[in-house]
Design a protein around this nucleic acid. Structure first.
Length: 844
DNA sequence: GCAAGGTC
């Protein structure tokens, strides 16, 4: 039997299809897909199935000096046991093995890891094939010319693993132990995350140190024959054109001159035609950046693209490549969109072009093509709105890369008035080119009328604007990822996760990411004692070392020994400053939790956590001062940089995924609740007059008048509002009300529940939210939630969600109890296997 | 409970 090993299941399936001429069948072993035909088996790994770590005796942080990790053994152990077991059992029956992992450094290492596992089971020959994309031609050619594993290249990857582990673990443990931050709140450091964090912190330092300068700009409304346009004052500043006037008196003088002249004379007209080339094919970074201008975070964009990839609609989304492979036939791919409702017209117009020549970016790599549609079209309702928007972006990007350039007519006009110069730059689209199929990049025109030198223009208005220079802007997530790519840190598959990691570690908050005090302290400490780990040089040096290993000019042992020595020197310095560093980190951690002064004792109010795990605001003066304020029960509190003017306390935001909200000043919230009175709106349906519990009922089956609970609108000190029973805590019946907006009880009544309708007036808008009867509203809310929960399932859109509900699955929870075959029979487009996958996922 | 790199 011949065993073929790929890096992932998707690749295994496609290679089996190609090599078997579509006759392969799949089976599941240990939860791993194995494709078979004749004497052949193909199995896909899941990237690395083994990982490096220290031996177990180093596991307990408190029992090990971090510096001991520097010379500790590094061992490789299976991390994906089921895949390893399947690989082993397949290997035992193989008399020939082919490694077909991705064609890049990490792929070589993953292949070598598989090789080592296989060698423990068999002496069968092991070959290596390399192909630059999984297409019939490439794959056939690769299998006809098999090669050998490049152990040097794999060793380069191993060296990286070892260096990253030792530096990351030793420094992470050192900082965490010195600040006594163990458990979930450890303080991490790493070759990629720390330089990325420094980038953010450095930018924040620039912002904080920024000292704005005043300047003035003068704008004028000009017109020729009634056609108005805007022009800007400029002057000659040592040979270059300047618009900003730094001196107020000079600005006012120019403004006065221009205001007093009724006309200006055209002194210069310059026309130029510019081509605006279509963009290059999408690599991961460019894709994330385009998705970010549609409002998607890096993480969200990637997870949608991964879903579309797994479902077969897009190619692999993790790629650096910006050049389509030779075997991509643009005409054929455009043809796949011809009949489509959304894309048909655009595809047809592109096919009408005289020539189709895709654009090329700068990087051509061997593992995966640029991200493009496969030609298989998803059902718009089925994939959901977000996935569709991402899909359309990728389709249109592909369209743009095969479209014609756009051309623009540029018109620059300079006019003089009272010795002062005004300029206007016009821009008109001559040939729409790729903009016709790619609406995401700006194609805005600026109107300037046709004028000739010597023409008189009227000056209709002049405006003097006082401005200030602005600090640099924070990096957005996608800008950060671009920066990482430029610095050569991280990879296509990890950069967006690194940004996410900075959020998880409490190093950055909000979007665009803003560093916490902890982040500033970690970066400062690293800069002082371990500068190497926060610099991009560490990666640059590692890359050079890896190249040397791959080319046989150095060995893994030499490179890791040198790296260990360097880290050892760093620890010599660190040892002496341990307490100092620990205190510094602890202070910064406290600063991130500090709201402001306690109204009772003047010490700091801090976000704290009770023994039960709930958050509240407490005083740093505890136990002498017992002042507290409650916080909402949902989400993780985050102290924002906004401050309440009344109480000098920073506002709190509650992070809870989609349900994240700004709580505001906790003292304002508590005081507002103290001042409000409960407003009774009806009887409690659980214990009210018409539904009293057994013991309290009178002969008529009702509670005695006045004894039953009433429903009232209540304001809690934590900021929540609800319709709840007046007999609380004896009766805990309650219905949620929105956190924001003024609650207004109307005269309209719900006949079913005998309750008034409620409206929410938010801000000054005169179009209130008609919430209606609170009971009806809550029931609808629950039903809506159920549909949304269903849509969270992989491959379920609004249409399928509805069908699932019709089939008795109102909520994902119901899936536990259903018979997959029965439901699959009732719901078109959902297989029993899919349902089993959902069940497995929910169980996990 | 550490990193970064694969992958889901």
């Amino acid at each position: 039997m011949r065993l073929i090993v790929t890096e992932k299941d998707n690749a295994a399936r496609r290679i089996a299809e190609i090599l078997s001429d579509d006759s392969a069948s799949g089976e599941r072993r240990n939860g791993v897909n194995v494709y078979k035909w004749g004497g052949q088996r193909v199995v896909g790994l899941s990237g690395h199935v083994v990982g490096v770590d220290f031996p177990p005796e180093y596991a307990e942080w408190r029992d090990v000096e971090p510096a001991e990790l520097i010379d500790a053994d590094v061992v490789t152990t299976p991390t994906r046991e089921n895949i390893v077991a399947t690989l082993r059992s397949l290997a035992r029956k193989a008399d020939e093995v082919v490694i077909a992992t991705d064609y890049d450094r990490e792929g070589e290492l993953i292949g070598k890891e598989a090789y080592e596992l296989i060698r423990e089971e068999t002496d069968a020959p092991v070959e290596r094939v390399r192909f630059s994309s999984i297409t019939e031609r490439e794959v056939q050619k690769a299998f006809e010319n098999p090669d050998e594993i490049d152990f040097d290249l794999a060793a380069a990857g191993e060296a990286r693993q070892i260096v990253d582990l030792i530096w990351g673990a030793a420094l992470t443990r050192f900082l965490s132990l010195s600040a006594k931050q163990l458990g979930n709140d450890f303080i991490s450091v790493g070759r990629v995350q720390s330089p990325t964090l420094k980038l953010i912190v450095d930018r924040e330092r620039e912002i904080e140190a920024f000292d704005p300068d005043d300047y003035w700009e003068i704008l004028a409304d000009l017109a020729k024959d009634g056609q108005g346009f805007e022009a800007q004052y400029f002057y000659d500043d040592d040979g270059s054109e300047a618009e900003r006037v730094w001196d107020e008196a000079a600005a006012e003088a120019a403004y006065a001159d221009l205001s007093e002249s009724g006309t200006a004379t055209v002194t210069e007209v310059r026309r130029r035609t510019r081509t605006d080339d279509p963009p290059a094919p999408f690599n991961t970074t460019a894709f994330i950046s385009a998705a970010s201008s549609l409002g998607y975070s890096a993480q969200r964009a990637m997870s949608l693209a991964e879903e579309l990839y797994t479902d077969g609609y897009l190619t692999y989304p993790r790629t650096d490549n910006t050049v389509y492979p030779d075997d991509l036939d643009p005409e054929e791919l455009l043809g796949a969109f011809e009949g489509s409702y959304e894309f048909g017209d655009d595809a047809a117009s592109l096919l009408d072009q005289d020539e189709i020549e895709p654009t090329r970016g700068e990087t051509e790599s061997t593992d995966h093509p640029p991200i493009h549609p496969t030609g298989e079209l998803p059902d718009r309702d089925e994939v959901g709105a977000d996935a569709w928007e991402i899909y359309e972006l990728v389709v249109r990007r592909f369209f743009a890369t095969v479209a014609e350039p756009a051309t623009w007519a540029h018109l620059r006009v300079v006019a003089e008035a009272a010795g002062r110069s005004l300029k206007a730059n016009g821009k008109r689209l001559l040939e729409e080119g790729y903009h016709a199929v790619y609406p995401y990049s700006s194609a805005g025109e600026t109107f300037v009328p046709e004028v000739s030198e010597g023409d008189k223009l009227s000056i209709d208005a002049v405006e003097l604007e006082a401005k200030q220079t602005q600090p640099p802007r924070r990096y957005g997530q996608s800008r950060l990822i671009q920066h990482m790519e430029e610095m050569g840190i991280g990879t296509k598959a990890t950069r967006h996760n690194i940004v996410e990691k900075l959020y998880d570690r409490g190093y950055v908050e909000d979007d665009p990411p803003r560093p916490t005090k902890l982040a500033e302290a970690v970066v400062s400490a690293a800069e002082e004692y371990a500068d190497h780990v926060v610099s991009e040089e560490m990666t640059a040096q590692l890359e050079a070392d890896m190249t040397a290993i791959a080319e046989g000019e150095a060995t893994l042992e030499e490179v890791t020994a040198e790296s260990r020595e360097m880290l050892g020197e760093i620890f010599e310095e660190l040892r002496e400053s341990r307490t100092e560093i620990g205190e510094f980190l602890q202070e910064s951690l406290k600063a991130d939790r500090t709201l402001g002064p306690c109204p009772e004792c003047g010490e700091d109010l801090l976000v704290r956590r009770s023994r039960q795990g709930s958050y509240f605001v407490g005083c740093d003066g505890f136990p002498e001062c017992r002042f507290t304020l409650p916080l909402p029960s949902t989400g993780e509190p985050q102290v924002t940089d906004e401050t309440c003017e009344d109480h000098d306390l920073r506002h709190v935001k509650m992070l809870a995924g989609r349900d994240t909200f700004v709580h505001g000043c906790p003292r304002c919230k508590a005081e507002a609740a103290d001042e409000s009175e409960d407003e009774v709106i009806g009887h409690c349906p659980e214990c009210g007059d018409s539904a009293a519990p057994e013991g309290q009922r009178n002969e008529g089956g009702e509670a005695a008048e006045g004894e039953g609970g009433k429903l009232a609108i209540k304001h809690l000190r934590s900021g929540s509002r609800l319709v709840g029973c007046t007999r609380y805590p004896d009766c805990d019946y309650s219905l949620p009300l929105p956190r924001r907006g003024e609650i207004v009880v109307t005269d309209e009544r719900c006949e079913d529940h005998d309750l008034p309708h409620i409206e929410i007036h938010d801000g000054d808008d005169d179009d209130p939210w008609e919430l209606g009867c609170p009971i009806c509203n809550y029931e609808e809310f629950q039903a809506r939630n159920a549909v949304e929960n269903l849509e969270d399932l992989d491959g379920v859109g609004p249409a399928t969600a509805e069908k699932l509900q019709d089939a008795g699955v109102a909520d994902p929870e119901d899936l536990h109890e259903v018979d997959p075959d029965a439901v699959a029979g009732e719901v078109q487009g959902v297989s029993a296997d899919r349902i089993r996958e959902w069940q497995d996922e929910l169980a996990a």
